[in-house]
Design a protein around this nucleic acid. Sequence first.
DNA 1: TTCCGACAGTGGGGTCGCAAT
DNA 2: ATTGCGACCCCACTATCGGAA
Length: 508
Amino acid sequence: MLLIDVVRVSEAVARTPARLGKIGHLAELLGRVGPGEAEIAIAYLSGELPQRQIGVGWRSLQDLPGPKLAATATLTDVDALLTKIKSVSGQGSQAARKALVHELFAGLTSQEQAFMLKLLGGELRQGALDGVMIEAVAKASGAPSADVRRALTLRGWLPAVGAAALAGGVPRLKEFRLEVGRPVSPMLAGSAPGVAAALAKAGAPAALEWKLDGIRVQAHRSGSEVRVFTRTLDDLTSRVPELVEAVLALPVEDAVLDGEVIALRPDGRPHPFQVTAARTGSKIDVDRLRAETPLSVFFFDALRVEGADLLDLPYAARQERLAATVPPPLLTPRLVTDDVAEAERFFAEVVKAGHEGLVVKALSSPYAAGRRGAGWIKVKPRHTLDLVVLAAEWGHGRREGRLSNLHLGARDPETGGFVMLGKTFKGLTDELLAWQTERFLALADGPTTEWTVHVRPELVVEVAFDGVQRSPRYPGGMALRFARVLRYRPDKRAEDADTVGTVRALMI
DNA sequence: TTCCGACAGTGGGGTCGCAAT
DNA sequence: ATTGCGACCCCACTATCGGAA
C-alpha cells in the first residue's frame, strides 16, 4: 500500500467531525490493507509509529528538503527507513540521523511530507486515537469491539492487536491472554471534587485507598524472574532494585501486582514528587542512589496469583488474594466504609500524613484496564490563589487565533512587581478564550514576540493548583503544580492579588 | 428528548540520558 | 562542563459525539 493512501484517509478523518464517519473512513482503508502492512497503517492512523520512538522530534524536523512530485513511497519503504533511523546511535549519530530524515522526506510529495511532519512530531490531530481506532478495527474485521478492547488491554499495543484481528478475527483475538512478563494496560481513575461525591459515584460501601504521589508500577514475577513496568508499559526493572527484591521475597512463584513506588523520608513522610521522579528516572549508579534515597513500594491490586487470572473478579475478591500474597507493610493503607463522615476523617488523615489524597474504589468493579471509568475515583485537596496575568501565548489547533496559555504572577510587595509562577491553559471555556483574547490585546504592553503577548499586570484570575514545587526555571525558585483557571476576579485589582510570601509558605 | 460516559485535544512542570558544543 | 533535545514521569480541564435513559 502507498503512503499516500493512508495520508488521504487521515485527511478525510480530520475533515469528518462525526465519530461514526471517522470510523467508516478508517475501516474502509483497513479493509484493503495487506497483512504485511496492517500494523504500519494502524499505527500511523492512530498517531503512532511501529517503532514507538525513533529519537526524532520537532528540532530534527527543521530545514527539510523540497517535495517530490509523484507519490510512490510505500508503507513498507517508509517503515524500513524509520527503523533505520531508530537504529542509528553513538558518536556522530545526530548527523547520520539527520541525513536519513532528509532521505525520507526527499522521497515524499508535499502532501505526504505534511503528514509525516505531524506524525513524527506527535501532532497528527485528526480526531482519532486508540478509542476510535478500536471501533474501526472491529468494523473492518467483523469482531465485536469488546473483544478488540479486551485484547488491547492484555497486549497493550493496538497495531499488533488490530493486525491480528484483521488476519484472523475473533479466534486470533482470543489468543491474547495475560502473560507474566508482558505488561497489561493499567486501570486508570476518574476524579471527583470531594470524598462525598466520590462515594456517591462509586456506590457505598466503597474502599478508600491512600493515593501516594509516586510512580505507578506493575510488577511481574515468574519464578526467580521479576520485571517491572510503568503506566505506559515501559520497562523500569533496572531502576527499582528494592521493588525487585520485595517481589522476590513474596511467598509465591507467579504473580502480577499493581502498585506505586515512592521515596519516603526516614520519618515515613513522603519526599516531594520530584525526589521520587529523579530516583526512578536514574539508571546510572542506582546502587549509590538507593543508599541515599531508598524507594518503598505499596501494592493495591493483584491481577494474577499462582496461575489464576484475577482481572475479571470483583475488586473485593482481588483484595483477598492480594492480602494473602503481600505482607501488610507492603499494602496500601485502606478503609472500607459507607459512612461519609468516617471517609472524610480518613481523607484528612492521609493529607495530614503528607500524601496526595485518596482513590475511592467500587467493591464490585473488575479490573477494567485502560478506561477512566467510574470504578476508581481519585480525590485530592485543592489550593487556590488570586494571581495576576502577566502575558498570554497564542493557542494552537482549535485554539488558533485565541490567546490561550496564561503567564501567572504573584505580587512581590518588596519590589512592587510580580514574580512568575508558571503558566496555565486549563479551565478556559471557548467564551472565556474569546473574551480574554480581546481583553489582552487591549491591555498589550511591553515586549511582544511571535507567540506571546505581554500585558499590563491588571487582570486578577483565581487559580486552583495541587501544590507548590521547587523550580529551576522560574525566578522565584518555585512553580505551581497542575495550575488551572477557576474564574476571573473582576472585583479584584492587582494590588489585591496574593503575594510571593503566601506562595512560599505553601512550598513543601 | 435529554442526559451522561467516553474520547480527543490542549497544553503544564520536572527529570534523566545522550550527543554536540 | 554546559546546553539542547527527546523521552517519560506526573497531570486538569472543556467540547463533542452518540448511545443510554
